[in-house]
Simulated scan of single mutants.
Amino acid sequence: MILRVATLLAFAVVATHIAKTLHLFGYFKTIYNHHPGPCRVIPGVEPGSEDVTVSTNGLAFISSGIRGKGNQSDPTIQPPLLKGRIFLFDFNKPENNAVELTFTGDFDKDNFYPHGISLYEDPISGEKRLFVVNHHISDQDRVEIFRFDEKQQSLHHLKSIAGKNIYSVNDLVAVGPETFYYTNDLYFTKPYPLAVKMEIYSGLSWGNIGYYSNGKDTIISSGHRFPNGINVSPNGKYIYVATLIPGVLLIYERKKDNSIQEVKRVDLHTTIDNIELDKETGDLWIGCHPIFHLLMEHEKNYNNPAGSQVLRLRFDDQNSPFENIDVREVLMDDGSLIKGSSVASYYDNKMLIGTVVHKLAYCELIAF
């Protein structure tokens, strides 16, 4: 009798976990297409435009070419396209296409596979520094810091940062010339593919949030399931973190010692990726994967469909900014426009939508 009860309980636990996983991975979702206005694909930016961040004057920086995401089985994707690159798109001249930036300085560009990016603009000098997560070929993740030269359309390499707590970095946000918060999405890393799959499917919360300053990388918050995109409010008071698979936005208050304290959790009921901000209003723009299991199949074969979704979050009450949050779906697409949206970057009623391993789209926001 005891054995029978134990067996039934074990079956119930397993069945519940399977049901939750199927729900989180979007097996029961349907996509209904709608766009906020006219949209077009920006040619030449592929495979992937995983992260996009925009400056105060409308220059968008785009990362392309995550290591390990190249689809060698697809004959239309040639090896030169698998190189890591940074592109620039000018929102002020949206009729133009994106241009590839060149690198200067002592930098190993042949082992450059960019993921999350963040732009730091010096409030006094106006200097623009681009921080880039680099999945280096050595399997040692690092953060590269570049100075942007607008006249030369180039990125001058300033510094590479590595550390024992910088090991499975997904995204980062710069808060100073050489200071940043970052997310480690998983505990296991690239050399252990089976362990990575186990961590993703089992629901283990072994990801974390780190902080780097003055040569020291420190884990400041642990116990998260696949922490992904990260950003900071325009006033620097709050840190936003997207947890990919649970689809929960974590909001933290930033303390004077740069530690963080959770103040709010927002369940967005979708798979959320990178977070960008409207620097004037503080609105959050989030790239999402409405059906996550299709994204995983798309990463294996670019021809497989994957949906795209963009959410905008507006905090209505400035005195109590997280009491009333307006969530609006700006775009939903079944792959007809782009596949696997990972980021949405906004500027002056215009938007760029990046993807993990597909293309880059531009939309005008007329009705949303």
Rank of each mutant, 00 (worst) to 15 (best):
T76Q: 07
G37C: 00
T355A: 00
A344I: 04
I42H: 03
D257K: 06
G282D: 03
S118Y: 05
V241E: 10
D316R: 15
Q78N: 09
G354Q: 01
T271Q: 12
K300P: 01
R254F: 05
L244I: 03
T243P: 05
L331R: 03
H17Q: 12
D74K: 10
H157K: 04
I18C: 02
P75A: 05
L81F: 08
L204A: 12
L331S: 07
S259D: 09
N228L: 02
K279F: 13
S213L: 12
K159L: 15
D217I: 05
D139P: 00
F315D: 06
D267P: 15
L24D: 12
E323I: 10
H35G: 08
E280L: 14
G58N: 11
N235L: 05
I137C: 02
Q153V: 00
I353E: 04
Q261G: 06
S345H: 05
H115N: 11
E150Y: 01
I251H: 00
R129W: 02
V232A: 09
N303R: 15
T21C: 04
G207D: 09
E95D: 14
P79S: 12
E150D: 12
N274T: 10
T270Y: 08
S233E: 03
N235P: 08
L365R: 05
L59I: 13
N214W: 03
L277E: 10
K339V: 08
P47R: 07
L172E: 03
R265T: 12
I66N: 02
